[in-house]
């Protein structure tokens, strides 16, 4: 059968057309994406990478809720200028507990992957509530409500840890039982700062590039 007469068949048959589109469009996914999902080396945590605590996870969910990743990447590229500006480039093993990943696609503000430990908690607090009081030229939105809302109201933290455990994150029964009390008395801003301070601390300390 010549290519043209084969095509004539597809062109006159709805079912064949649907099947053809499905077949042709799935090859790329099967050859390129599926192997990545099965690649074990992408699932091995680097030396100091650990699961997020109840407070850090709550902070991370606030980071997601406020759309921080719209303007801040978390992916330091292996380039001289980036390593100098931000710190060691990002490794796959640092992200194994990141659901979803937050690498971002735009740096309206600077990359945040190595921001952990660079500024004090107080600096973050003032900066989040009123960015321009710290950096006059900043165009970051202010987040005054973070200082008012309770961290325990961000979502059901017990259910969150349990869901992540189903996905393979090593939370113990004790971790899950203690989660509610860890959030007690904290504001949203405290949780977000806890998350920011642990960002990028998953590498062994002797790695400088």
């Amino acid at each position: 059968m010549s290519a043209l007469s084969l095509h004539k068949k597809i062109e006159e048959n709805t079912g064949l057309l649907i099947f053809g589109i499905l077949l042709v469009s799935s090859i790329g996914g099967l050859v390129q994406i599926l192997p990545v999902l099965n690649q074990q080396s992408l699932q091995i945590a680097t030396e100091n990478t650990r699961v997020y605590s109840a407070v850090e996870l709550t902070g991370r969910d606030i980071y997601i809720r406020e759309g921080c990743s719209v303007c801040h990447s978390q992916q330091v590229r292996p380039l001289i200028a980036e390593v100098e500006r931000y710190g060691p480039y990002s490794r796959a093993g640092e992200f194994v507990y990141d659901r979803p990943f937050l690498w971002g696609s735009k740096r309206t503000g600077p990359d945040l992957h190595r921001v952990g430990g660079k500024f004090s908690n107080d600096w973050h607090r003032v900066h989040l509530i009123d960015p321009r009081s710290v950096i006059a030229a900043s165009i970051m939105p202010a987040y005054p409500w973070l200082a008012k809302r309770e961290a325990s109201q961000v979502g059901n933290i017990t259910a969150k840890l349990s869901a992540l455990r189903i996905l393979g994150h090593p939370y113990s029964d004790e971790d899950i039982a203690a989660a509610d009390s860890e959030l007690e008395g904290l504001k949203e801003i405290d949780a977000l700062i806890a998350y920011l301070q642990m960002l990028g601390t998953g590498l062994s300390e002797d790695i400088s590039i």
């Binding site: 996914g29 390129q32 994406i33 990545v36 999902l37 690649q39 992408l42 699932q43 969910d61 796959a92 640092e94 992200f95 194994v96 507990y97 990141d98 659901r99 979803p100 990943f101 690498w103 979502g155 059901n156 259910a159 969150k160 869901a163 992540l164 189903i166 996905l167």
Partner: peptide
């Protein structure tokens, strides 16, 4: 994804693998 509450879920993919699926 695994739903946690009505407005929150966690992706079944993590980290670099989630990135590849998302950009696919």
């Amino acid at each position: 994804a695994i739903p946690v509450t009505i407005g929150k879920s966690y992706s079944v993919y993590a980290g670099a693998q989630d990135a590849v699926v998302q950009w696919w």
